Amino acid sequence: MSTLPKSLPRYQASRRRFLRTVGLFVGVVGASLATLLPVIAKWVPARLRPPGAIEEPAFLASCIKCGQCVQVCPVQAIRLADIDEAMGVGVPYIDARAQACDFSCDAVQCILACPTGSLNHTIIKKEEVRMGLARVARPEACLASQGQGFQGQARGADFQGLLRYTEIDRWNPIPVRDHPYDLELCDLCVRQCPIETAISLQHIDNEGKRKMPVINKACVGCGVCEMICPVEPTVIVIDERKMWGAA
């Protein structure tokens, strides 16, 4: 079978038609996907995203599921969604109850490692992160609200979570189970919060023996309070992507 020499006009015209067809096809597919992104976003389970994650539809569109954020996290807080996540398979997320982002890296290494800007590259400090907002979901179960202290391992001997205790090691997080507590009044959520003034305890009786956690504007939704809470189910939860003042 003969082929046309590449220098012939017929060949050049055929090649241009082919490239135009390919370009049109790519454009149509791209436009269709862009239209479907808001719909696709609804199919993806609501998850706490890594620090700096841009708006959900844009995040799902730009994240290439490379796992670089997973690799650099010092506490292994970031996971890639499994196949049961449907359209969200391979997308990075954080299960704060199992392992929160405690900002052990200080410089938010996951953002620096992201090659696509899915994690906002303009964020350089942990205080600028907005992952969500903590919420006291079960106030009646809070130990502090009952005037109770806490002794022992915050999540038990089998808990695998890590946390940076600066008084023990400035740079390396250690297992939570290796750091038992002896507290007259439980204040673990306040004590271990990596963001100054993000959470505080407020008196709820005249004697000052009972207190309640209060979430403040500085909260970035890192999830440490949810992870460290010794009550099961946890008293404090993170509402993903919720911002301060939002209804």
Score class of each variant (00 low, 15 high):
residue 3 T to V: 09
residue 5 P to F: 00
residue 6 K to V: 06
residue 7 S to G: 05
residue 8 L to M: 09
residue 8 L to A: 08
residue 10 R to T: 10
residue 11 Y to K: 07
residue 12 Q to L: 14
residue 13 A to D: 15
residue 15 R to S: 11
residue 17 R to M: 10
residue 18 F to W: 09
residue 20 R to W: 11
residue 20 R to L: 13
residue 21 T to Y: 15
residue 22 V to E: 10
residue 24 L to T: 07
residue 24 L to S: 10
residue 25 F to P: 00
residue 30 G to E: 05
residue 34 A to H: 09
residue 36 L to G: 10
residue 36 L to Y: 15
residue 37 L to I: 14
residue 40 I to G: 05
residue 41 A to M: 07
residue 41 A to P: 01
residue 43 W to Y: 12
residue 45 P to W: 04
residue 46 A to G: 02
residue 47 R to Y: 08
residue 48 L to S: 02
residue 49 R to L: 12
residue 51 P to L: 01
residue 55 E to W: 04
residue 60 L to S: 10
residue 61 A to E: 09
residue 62 S to E: 14
residue 63 C to Y: 01
residue 71 Q to S: 12
residue 72 V to E: 05
residue 75 V to F: 06
residue 76 Q to D: 13
residue 76 Q to E: 14
residue 79 R to N: 03
residue 82 D to V: 01
residue 84 D to T: 15
residue 87 M to K: 04
residue 91 V to E: 12
residue 93 Y to M: 01
residue 94 I to M: 02
residue 95 D to I: 08
residue 98 A to L: 00
residue 98 A to V: 01
residue 99 Q to Y: 09
residue 99 Q to W: 02
residue 114 C to H: 00
residue 114 C to M: 06
residue 116 T to G: 10
residue 118 S to N: 07
residue 125 K to V: 08
residue 126 K to T: 04
residue 130 R to M: 04
residue 135 R to H: 12
residue 140 E to I: 01
residue 141 A to G: 03
residue 142 C to E: 04
residue 142 C to L: 05
residue 143 L to K: 07
residue 143 L to S: 03
residue 144 A to E: 12
residue 145 S to L: 04
residue 148 Q to V: 06
residue 148 Q to H: 14
residue 150 F to C: 15
residue 153 Q to N: 05
residue 154 A to Y: 09
residue 154 A to W: 15
residue 159 F to R: 01
residue 161 G to W: 14
residue 164 R to F: 00
residue 167 E to T: 15
residue 168 I to L: 02
residue 171 W to N: 14
residue 172 N to I: 10
residue 173 P to K: 05
residue 173 P to D: 07
residue 174 I to V: 15
residue 176 V to A: 06
residue 179 H to L: 00
residue 180 P to D: 02
residue 180 P to S: 11
residue 180 P to V: 10
residue 180 P to G: 03
residue 181 Y to M: 14
residue 181 Y to N: 11
residue 184 E to V: 03
residue 185 L to V: 15
residue 190 V to T: 13
residue 190 V to C: 05
residue 194 P to L: 03
residue 195 I to S: 07
residue 196 E to M: 14
residue 197 T to W: 03
residue 198 A to S: 01
residue 199 I to D: 06
residue 200 S to C: 07
residue 203 H to S: 07
residue 204 I to H: 00
residue 205 D to N: 00
residue 206 N to P: 03
residue 206 N to R: 14
residue 208 G to K: 01
residue 211 K to L: 11
residue 216 N to L: 12
residue 217 K to F: 12
residue 218 A to P: 00
residue 222 C to T: 00
residue 222 C to N: 06
residue 223 G to H: 11
residue 223 G to K: 02
residue 224 V to Q: 13
residue 225 C to Y: 01
residue 226 E to I: 13
residue 229 C to K: 03
residue 230 P to Q: 07
residue 230 P to Y: 09
residue 232 E to L: 12
residue 237 V to E: 14
residue 238 I to N: 03
residue 238 I to G: 02
residue 245 G to T: 08
residue 247 A to K: 13
